[in-house]
Design a protein around this nucleic acid. Sequence first.
DNA 1: TATTGTTATACTCTATAACTATA
DNA 2: TATAGTTATAGAGTATAACAATA
Lengths: 143, 143
Amino acid sequence: MPTPTMTAELSSTLRMAVMRLARRLRAERADTSLSLSQMAALGSLVRFGSLTPGELAEVEKVQPPSMTRTVASLEARGLVSRMPHPQDRRQVLLTATPEAEAMVRADRRRRDAWMSQRLSELTPAEREKLRAAAEILERLADA
Amino acid sequence: MPTPTMTAELSSTLRMAVMRLARRLRAERADTSLSLSQMAALGSLVRFGSLTPGELAEVEKVQPPSMTRTVASLEARGLVSRMPHPQDRRQVLLTATPEAEAMVRADRRRRDAWMSQRLSELTPAEREKLRAAAEILERLADA
DNA sequence: TATTGTTATACTCTATAACTATA
DNA sequence: TATAGTTATAGAGTATAACAATA
């Protein structure tokens, strides 16, 4: 039964551990030739399929002109292709190319591999504790 | 007893939950008048006490010229003061002013408050699971 | 008129290279 | 000579404001 003080300490400890672990994971990028923003945009395109520039800007929480620039650099590298929108000729549909999908998958694999390696160094009981917590952390992130 | 597949799934689930939660926490900044880099530099100064610009650059993982600029902006706002190094006249000692310390504490309090609120909405059993995992997550971040 | 996307422009953060002062 | 810090300059990412095309 947690006292207020114990809960306050948990907040602080958990917050710092999560921030530091995230920072560590961010450092495990597979392909440093793409910036984080570029890789994130590509990841969203792969995840959601075709999106318009406006939708992609909204998903990535940036303004449309910023996404215009990001998309232009990805397009120049052959990682994004654009098609006319079937109904609305003002809009454009962006899609990740097969090469881009492969890069996104490789990036995910590499981060998973780092985490897997760390997890394999734990005891089964410790892994079980993380498993129990993972689902709760997911809910916290959505809150 | 985890099979390889179960461990792989845990890696992926845990990694994504941590990244998303970190992202959420980053959005809970108290004072948006300071950029993340500025607040981080200030946080390190408060944490370590007086540092030279070179040491601060190393802690923050940026190059010295970048830190020169960050420090200059903080100094202009009265958040950092500089003193000559007692032994080596090439070096400078940077210290966070009392106002800066208050800002750093307020920032931490706000992030802790958000986390506390989320934790208070959980059941005692769920909090206990997070408590058990927090210490393991800390070790992962250091690995 | 409203909406979608782009262009023009500026600011911030980062970097590398060159410079100054001191050791 | 080597080191600590700064200045000069450039590139990436972001923003707001203005514009063009289409609805």
